[in-house]
Design a binder for these strands. Structure first.
Lengths: 145, 145
DNA sequence: ACTGGCGTTGACGTCGGCGTCAGGGCGTAG
DNA sequence: CTACGCCCTGACGCCGACGTCAACGCCAGT
């Protein structure tokens, strides 16, 4: 299987695959003409990466899963390192959700107060509004300052 | 008041202020030596911008609030355009929170299943995982594809 | 005069995850 | 021979909100 077919089967692009390879997540054998050649295993790796990415995992966070699969395990999350990533992400998600909830409530309150035409209550600073799901600082939600 | 003092009083940096000015959000008079000169009104504008930014609003989304204040209203959210921004953001937040909740539940389930040592259940694709709080596509949470 | 601290503009760097060329090669069908 | 379709590498573009550096000006204190 060549890169175009693999990309299509995984619902992504050839550019993404080459990018993953440049990050060391996907390795490819080479045919006699220099073209990348993949097998079914690679499709499984790739699907693992895509699934995690679609859930908001950064590329680096998919690495333990990939290595776990490469180590011969039937599923990417059969290894302790993968579980650690799960747990960390879970904590991040909880913090992020709580954060967004707080912001949401604040916005809702301000909207209601403004609609009913009351005076400005107080600046009501949202406590520590950082919310990063990405590995380090690409999040649009809060400032780190 | 010069730029350094204003920045300090608002808890931000001079670089940010110059950036806001380049975006047309903050305007400054100039002293005879070319230095920017600000008044108390500018501090209020700036605080409005910072408050919204800290809550995850994009810079462009703060514009209606700023213009509302400049129009002489006592608070930035006294204008319909600002309320529209509130409402839009509220909808975004709700969508985002629901999205993150779904991801969270999925991750939790996969973690639990992996910890108890059960077989891979099913890829369990998270439905449409997009989650953007920023104006257009800077969010780290979900892929748009 | 020199030092230190403030200000100015302009321009490039950062972060992730690719998109989008530019410029070439290989293979096959017409 | 030519066209088409796939592949290759390398390099720049993008998005937001600034950080950081360069090279300079202006003013006060000693």
């Amino acid at each position: 299987m060549r890169i175009g077919e693999l990309a299509a089967r995984a619902g992504t692009t050839t550019r993404a695959l080459r990018y993953y390879e440049s990050r060391g997540l996907l390795t490819a054998r080479r045919g006699p003409n220099g073209h990348r050649v993949y097998g079914e295993d690679d499709l499984r790796l790739l699907r693992q990466i895509r699934t995690l990415q679609d859930s908001g995992f950064g590329l680096e966070e998919t690495r333990p899963f990939v290595e776990c699969l490469r180590a011969g395990h039937p599923s990417g999350d059969a290894c302790p390192a993968s579980l650690d990533v799960y747990r960390r992400k879970l904590a991040e998600l909880d913090a992020c959700i709580a954060q967004l909830q707080a912001v949401r409530d604040t916005v809702r309150e301000r909207l209601t107060r403004a609609e009913t035409g009351a005076g400005t209550p107080a600046p009501a600073a949202v406590p520590e509004p950082r919310c990063e799901l990405a590995p380090h600082g690409a999040g649009p939600i809060g400032r780190t300052g």
